[in-house]
Amino acid sequence: MLQYFRNIWEGFWTPLVGLSMTWRKLFVPSVTMQYPEERWELPTNSRMQLFVNMDDCIGCLQCERACPVQCISIDTVKAIPDEVEETTTGHKKRLHVTKFDIDMVKCCYCDLCTFPCPTECIYMTPSFEDSSPDRYGLVYHFVNMTPQRAAELEEKARQFDAAEAARKAKASEKSATATA
């Protein structure tokens, strides 16, 4: 009998303890945020949208290889020696990057691509608000190059290669005749 009334008492009292705490919380500042008006201060190393600084990219494909979901696709064309530029980090750009696409739909934001980059030109930015009405809107094209320009560069590289091969052949011929 005593147990019966104790149970009833506990059944009332323990929820009241909880409710009193809930009531107390009414008078403390809220922890939620009105999102579009207020925003979080994100840490600088937040991993959101990827960005590639194309001036520094040497087209080494390290990032493409490191990516576990193959969402980076890069095409390169050999640059002829007169056109080789230098990056801000002092690397030689021996390749023209004709295509540098990152499919942010596939990207899993794992950050594996940024570590192997020799010139540290691919990195993640704290910007996360990006949406698109279709899935191609999130394919980022970091190189603005027309196909004509790419073909031109390719042609140039091919001509250079041919000329180089011819020069080599000639040189070896010459050396062969010289030794003979």
């Binding site: 960005f51 698109s132 279709d134 191609y136 999130l138 394919v139 980022y140 094209h141 603005n144």
Partner: peptide, 15 residues
């Protein structure tokens, strides 16, 4: 790629 609307990253100043 039907109706593809290419969205260029560099066009976005905020990024």
């Amino acid at each position: 790629e039907i109706g593809m609307d290419v969205y260029r990253f560099q066009d976005r100043e905020d990024l």
